[in-house]
Design a protein around this nucleic acid. Structure first.
Lengths: 195, 195
DNA sequence: ACTGCGAATCAACACTACGTCGAGTATCAC
DNA sequence: GTGATACTCGACGTAGTGTTGATTCGCAGT
């Protein structure tokens, strides 16, 4: 609706204040239990003023998510680009992912594991998920071609299941011991031969 | 609040009508987007009357979930009770689970993968999840002791990750080809030796 | 056949949250 | 100083939840 021009400050401070408030409140409850009044109050403005800066709560959410989407990609880029059953690079990648989930749990959970009715959040989820799935499937295909990995389900289906598992598991617990579990499952699922 | 006595009919018909309406509406949208007025109207009563039968929407949800919780347990009981890397029993179990998810998608999704703020739903989720995890962990331990499965992460952690994966994957797609993917991943994660 | 009591019903109310409108005030450009 | 544009908010409309209190229904007991 009332979108702001190219303004560089004053309103910008308010926008940041809203985001900061959201980050703070999201630390201990999901967005569904945060009222817009709280975000506005936290930024020192009234609720109608909030709508000057964002279209809705989801706008705030996606702004926050965009901030960390890049970091997520960077965390896994290393492993996605490599090849062969080298589990150290996978473990390192998962460890940094776990750190990210520990820090931004409620935010990532809402965006990546919950089935939110909001189309903008669904779109974000699909975008992120598909990004990982496509890259992971490529890597699996590469490793199969090179003889590192045995044949099995279609690389896309396998990758999708593993990425979804990673999100769900990290969402419910991101302590370091789950990383070991994830590493083992992924390695065996991709490189292990079936018993 | 206003709970009904031991009544056997008339009100019972209404209670069933509410549940039937809920089942019908849940077929194409989640409970969060169904108003109590709709459930009441579908049963031919007014909203206040709805509260005579259920405490809230969640009450309806848990009533519906209880109906199918038993079926879920039966679906997997076969595999959970067995032992050894017999993948036919696992495949059969997953296929019937997939059918259940296809039929009750929105319901199971809301209860088992979404992180609902409602404590009653969380409790249901934990109860079901833990039930499966405990039994699956026992089976894994059994198979390791018998030499069918190699050592690896703690049976509980492994089982939890796999059960969560199963829920998430079946939630997002329950066609029969994902069953193959799940079978492969589970077999390799439990019985496959790492590459 | 009535009477009494619990089952069942709902209009009306109170509350919370969302989003909008329109009339304002601040701020800076010239 | 005088626009224009950034920003602000009181007041409003809407949609949903849950409660209250009066009322009617159904039937078991005498």
């Amino acid at each position: 609706m009332g979108r702001r021009r190219q303004g560089l400050s004053k309103g910008d401070r308010r926008e940041r204040a809203i985001l900061a408030t959201a980050r703070r409140l999201l630390a201990d409850r999901p967005m569904s239990r945060i009222a817009i009044d709280e975000l506005a109050a936290g930024a020192g403005i009234s609720r109608p003023s909030f709508y000057f800066y964002f279209d809705s709560k989801v706008g705030v959410l996606t702004a926050l998510l965009d901030e960390i989407a890049g970091q997520m990609a960077a965390d896994t880029g290393d492993w996605l680009a490599g090849s062969g059953a080298d589990d150290e690079s996978l473990r390192r990648s998962l460890r940094t992912s776990a750190r990210l989930w520990r820090e931004h749990g409620p935010l990532l959970r809402q965006a990546l594991v919950e089935e939110d009715p909001d189309p903008a959040l669904r779109a974000f989820r699909e975008r992120i998920l598909d990004g990982f799935v496509v890259k992971a499937a490529e890597r699996i295909q590469r490793d199969r071609d090179a003889g590192f990995a045995p044949p099995g389900p279609s690389p896309e289906a396998l990758a999708r299941a593993l990425v979804q598992m990673k999100f769900t598991v990290l969402s419910s617990a991101s302590a370091d011991d789950v990383v070991d579990t994830l590493v083992t499952i992924m390695q065996r699922a991709i490189y292990g031969t079936c018993g």
